[in-house]
Every structure is written in C-alpha cells, then in structure tokens.
Design a binder for these strands. Structure first.
Lengths: 192, 192, 192, 192
DNA sequence: GATGAATGAGTATTCATTCAT
DNA sequence: TATGAATGAATACTCATTCAT
C-alpha cells in the first residue's frame, strides 16, 4: 500500500507549488510560513512535517522549476544555434522562474545553508550541461578554440541577469530582437 | 561657513560606505539599522536624520557604486570591442557592486518604492548608455542591422547574472577565458 | 473536550482584566504591551494570539466593563426617578469604568478603528436603553413632551463628564448631595 | 521698547493657536513637536524657548479656550435659566473646546504634572463660577435647598460628557431638543 | 502525523528633548 | 534667542520554529 506515501508526495508537491507562487508574487522575505499555511489550507506544523525550514521550501521550489523551465538545448533535434535562438526568443515565458532565482540569490547571500544547497543542485546541473555542450561542440564541429564552459556560463548569466533587470521593471528588448541577437552571437561561436 | 554642510556630507558618505560594506557582506535583509549604527558609531536617530528609510540607504549605496564601478565603454580611446573585452577580463573587480545589485533586485521585488527609485536611476543610466552605444555604432561603422539597445541589455544582463551565480558560489570562468569569449562575441557584432 | 477552549477563554478574560487595571491605573498610552505581558506572565506573542491589536484590548476592556458596571434602570422594581437617584448616589463605585471610558475617548479620537468599534458597541447599547426609556415613559406616565432620548444622553453625558473631571482631580459633590440633585431633576421630568 | 515682548507674545499666541488646532484635529498623542514646528514655521528649539514641555502647550491651549468658549452665565442680562438654556441650544459651537478637554483628560491621567496644572487652572475657574452661582441663587431667589455647587458640576459634567460621546461619533440630540431639556431641568431648579 | 497556541528575540521607526553653534 | 542635528530609549508588532496534546 503506497497510498500514504502518494498522499505525502502530493501534499509536498502542492506545497512547493503554492510556495513558488507566493515567493514569485511577494518575495521570499515577505512570505510567512503562516501565509503559506493559509493558502494551502494546512497548519504551520504540517508544513514543518514536510520541510525542515522555510529555506528548504525555497530550495525545493527552485529545484522543481529549474527542471521544468530550462530544458536542455538540442533536445528537439535542432542544432545548437537554433535551440538557443528559440530560447532567447521565448524568454518572456520564463519570468516566473527568473524571479524565483533572484529570490534564491538573495537568500543564498544571507544564509549559508541555502547557498550550499543551491550550489550543490545548480553545480550538478551545470556540470550536466557542460557535458552536453562538449558533446555538441564535437558533434556540430564547433571551433575547438571556443570554450563551451564559458559559453554555458554566459548563456546562464544572461538569463539570470534578465531576472535582475525585470525586478527593476527595466524595459527589455522585444522577443524578436532578442532572438536575432542570439542568432548573430551564436553564429560567431558555432562558425557561420 | 560651509563647515556644517561639509560635515553632513561627509557623515552621509561614511554612512553609505558602511552600509554598502554591510549589505555586501551580510545581505540587506540581515543588516539591521542598529548594526549600521554600531558600525558607524552613530545613533539610529542620526541615521534617520540622513535617510528616510533603510531602503533609501540601499538605493543610495547602489547609486553611488553604479557610478564608481561601471565606467562607460570607449572612454580610454580604445574601440568598442577592446573596451568590452577588457571589462569582461576584469570582471572580478566588480563583485561587490554585483552583490549590491542582487540585493537591490530582491529588495525591489518586495518594495514598490525601492523598485521605482532604482528603476528611475537605472533607466536613466541605461538611456545614457544607449545614446553612447548608438554613437559608437555610427563612429565605428558597426552593421546597422545590429540592435545596439539589445546589445547593451545583453552586456548588462551578463554582468548582473554573474552576480547571481556568484551568490551561489558557482565557479565562474577564468578572467582570460571570459575576456576571450567577449572578444569573439564582439567581433561578430562589430564586424571583425 | 472543551478544555482548551475553556482555557483560552480564561486566558482572554485574565488578559482583559489585567489590561483594564493597567489602563485605569497608568493610562492607555502609557501602558506597553510588554508591561501587560509582564503583569500577566504571558509573552507578547501570546497576547497577540488573542488580540489583533493593543487597541482591541482597550475595546474589549470597555465592552466588558460597560456590561458589568452600568446596570439598566428600573431593574430592581423601583421607579425611574428612584433608580437614577440611586445611581447618582453611588457614582463613586464606577470611577474605574469612567476612567476606562475617558481612555477610550482619547483613543477613539486618534484611531479610526477604535472609534468605529466603540461606536458600534456603544450605539447598540444606547439604542437598547432608548427602547427601555420609552417603555418607562409609557409605563410611568411621564409627560410625552419630555424627549426621553435626550434624557438618556444627558444622563450618560453627566456620568462620562464626571470621568473627565475626575481625571483632573476636581472635587466632586458628596454622594448624598449628588443624589439629591438627581432626585430634584428627575422629579421635574417624570412629573413629581 | 516693548516690541520684543510684543513679538514674543504674538509668537506664543500663534503657537497656542496652531497647537490647539492640531490637538483637536489629530489628538495630543499623535501630534509631534515637529509637526507643530512645521505648521508654525518655527524650529522645535524655538518652541522649547516658549514652552518647557509639549504638555505645557496642551495646558496653555486649554486655558486659552476655556476662557474664550465658556462664558459665565448671566452676563447678557438674562436670567440663569435662559442663559443655560441658550448655552445648551448652542452646544455644537463648542465641539472643538470639548475635544481639547478630552485630550486634556487623557493627558492628565498619564502625566502628574498636567494633572496638577489643569487642576489648578480649572479649580480656580470653578471656584469663580461657584461664587457667581451663589450670587445668582440669592439674586434670583432660587430655593436655598438647591446645592448650586452640585448644579455647577452637573452642568460642567454634561458639557464634558458630550465631548466624550462626540469622540465616539455617537449621535447627539438636536440643538432645539437639547435646549428644551435644559429649560425643563432648570425650571425645576430655579423654581418654575 | 497533525494541530495551532505559545515562544521571545528581533526590527524599523518615532519623538520629546537637548545643546553646540 | 534661534537653530536643527543628534540623542537613544521606547514601542507595537511579526514570525520562524517548537511541542504538548
């Protein structure tokens, strides 16, 4: 009988979902555990049965949405340049995830444990991607002088930086323009 | 007798300096006004004589350091590509400013007034830079198809994104490698 | 198992009692929530678990004591004139309630919510009394020209005004004299 | 050269006037000395040159308005009953003074010095009135059984109590009705 | 596991008053 | 006398977390 475990898992997932929504909407620091309890119709005690910490909730929310929102490139049979260009063109759909990551950044700066947890999760994921990028470099015959690790970091940094700019309501380029810029930059990296 | 004004200005500057250091070190949310008072040997009342808010202190710190740390490109007689490449190569020197901006991002997400103040300051600065970038586009004969506004946002976003990655202790590229990447990307934009 | 509710109710009552005593003794503005916590051996958090506000405590204290201290006239089988005269003769026993009401007046002038809460409570009670006074007017055959609503307000105002004079330590009439005055005035209203 | 003294007197009067307006509007506790300084275009230091205390300002405001607003009865050649009736009929014009006295009551309850100052001022005034009332009793041939001291206190208390009721926004009788009630009561006291 | 009352340290901010200039 | 910067104690209220039931 796995029923109770299932139930637990569903509860947990619902909690993470609500936490994500609240953190994105109001900011991690401005959300209290009681807010979350109210929204999920749980008690704060019940939440602490699932998560050690408020910080753990943030980490879980980030882990969940990193997987969902940022897919690896060249999964859809298209080449690197095309995949990245499409990703830039559709940047607006990931605003929620970026907001979450900005919250995660500020929380990590304050809280050593958040930092190390997020570092672990994100470093692992970055390591995955690095491997994929190297494969791409070989398969697509990209100039070996291009440091694909640096390219990866640049693409991540740009994405995250958009999140920072968004938190200030700075006006960002139109999606088409942003995609074109990616296309041009990527062309220079993958060789015409 | 400008002495009292001078003194006030000096006091204010010292306050902003200490606030910057504390915000960078411990994070905006984790610094209390009393911490700051202790560190500056002032009373909290005196601090509130200079700044309406704790948030105002953060804004002041950011304004101060944006001007100091991010110089306009092509001020040293070098061309655009060279200037940006140098800036990327020396990215490590701006870690403090990036940390401050990450704090500013999280604070802006929570606090409407911080958001609008930072938006005002940063939008103005970005507008300045846009003008400069357009001049560069003409003077250096950069392909008119390149949207220099988007380029500017990309360069800003990358810088800010480094700040986010740094807050997670993610390993960043070596300065030389990072500079080379900039050089390659810029080449594609300015037309070698 | 009504135990926890009972306990809560008892805790609340004890809190209101202590708050009343403190407000009467030191004045609403001069009593801090911490004072109250100390006196009741509770923590301030626990107090805020029972009351949203310091103001709510004042309102609760007033509501409690209005009911206790000001009995409706002609409940003891005596006629209107006798009942009011007795009430005036025993005015000294209600000094605490009057002090509380003076605090409630000053607080209501500053705080919109206190004002509306007290208005609600007191207007309801005054409406009750008005009904009772009209019944009395009929039953005792009081001159229909006498506006019993105005009489009620006058009796209330006199009581409350004593509270104001008491707060200035102004010397008040001896109870007997005060009762005689009531007797004379009431005679003119009820028709000897 | 009395000029400087004149100026001081004028400054003081302006200060008292503004303080009165602010205390009535916002409540004594909610008015800061800086508010008052802003409103009067003075500095807080200058205010402390004229008054030892914020409390002294309240006392001064009350003293000033007691004299202005509550004139002695039978000054206009009319008899006692007529004078009081007129006073009740025009009660609405004295709402500001009553508000001030409610503030004075709450302040006196907290602050021993305010209490004693107000007591001194008000007791003196009440003593004056008592003398006047006794004269009236003789001159108008009022029944010697009527304790005119108690009557005076009753009239004062009613007035003050209206102030308390007003602070709760309780609906008061229409002026005509209120005047009629006074007329009826006074008739019973002065002998038809 | 769940509950939700209790904990109690912690925070930003205010304000009457002082005093060097 | 006037100034207004500085004082610094004081306050209401919040909130992550715990734990007896």
């Amino acid at each position: 009988m796995t029923a109770p475990l299932e139930k637990t898992r569903a509860t947990r997932a619902a909690l993470v979902e609500s936490a994500t929504a609240l953190f994105v909407e109001k900011g991690y620091g401005a959300v209290s555990v009681r807010d979350l309890a109210r929204r999920t119709q749980m008690t704060s005690g019940a939440i602490y049965g699932q998560f050690r910490n408020k910080a753990d909730l943030l980490v879980a929310a980030i882990v969940e949405h990193i997987s969902l929102d940022l897919e690896q490139p060249s999964r859809q049979g298209s080449d690197f340049r095309t995949a990245i260009t499409r990703q830039w063109r559709t940047y607006r759909s990931r605003a929620g995830m970026r907001a979450l990551l900005v919250e995660g950044a500020a929380a990590a700066r304050v809280d050593e444990e958040v930092r190390s947890q997020l570092n672990e999760v994100l470093s692992a994921r970055i390591a995955d991607w690095k491997r994929i990028y190297h494969d791409i470099q070989e398969q697509e015959g990209i100039d070996p002088d291009v440091d694909m690790d640096a390219v990866l970091i640049m693409l991540w940094a740009t994405e995250l930086g958009l999140g920072v700019l968004e938190s200030w309501d700075v006006e960002l380029p139109k999606p088409g323009v942003w995609g074109q810029l990616a296309d041009r930059i990527l062309a220079s990296l993958v060789g015409q």
